[in-house]
Design a protein around this nucleic acid. Structure first.
Length: 140
DNA sequence: GCCAACGTTGGC
DNA sequence: GCCAACGTTGGC
């Protein structure tokens, strides 16, 4: 299983929105960056991703599961190459993990979140995943 | 193919 | 509101 991190501005799409979609989940639409798109295309059913609130909050608030692999983004203009995956909320972070906390944790200093702050869909290593779950007091 | 101008993201 | 980082566009 691979691990990821997906960013969303809570004004546009928040963890609460995601929760409301329940087990049937929702398409992760609107990615308009080629590096992020490549990551969407690498995702496999069953992979897990941190749900990060950018701009407002700046913290990891939950975990989603990829429930459908990439297909054409219905919100893209005809002929454009953008894709989505479907994700469903799996578990909230009992203790949201803030960007500040991530920055001060030595084991997370190489996280893409810090190195490529503008990339909206990014890989997370198994080690990073473990550390963040421990910080968030999430048993997974 | 280079690069300046411009737009967007996202932290502060 | 500002600005750094970075992607895109368009003139040459």
């Amino acid at each position: 299983m691979a691990y990821w991190l997906m960013k969303s501005e809570p004004d546009a799409w928040s963890w609460q929105h995601q929760i409301k979609k329940g087990v049937s989940g929702e398409a992760w639409s609107g990615v308009r960056n080629h590096t992020a798109k490549q990551n969407l295309m690498k995702m496999k059913k069953g992979d897990r991703a941190f749900f990060y609130h950018s701009n407002i909050g700046k913290e990891i608030v939950g975990v989603v599961e990829i429930i459908r692999e990439h297909y054409t983004d219905p919100t893209a203009k005809k002929g454009e190459p953008w894709v989505v995956v479907d994700v469903r909320a799996l578990a909230p972070m009992p203790m949201p993990v803030t960007l500040t906390a991530i920055k001060t944790e030595p084991g997370l200093k190489n996280m893409a979140l810090l190195k490529h702050s503008r990339l909206s869909v990014q890989p997370v290593t198994a080690e990073e995943w473990k550390i963040v779950c421990r910080m968030g007091e999430l048993k997974m």
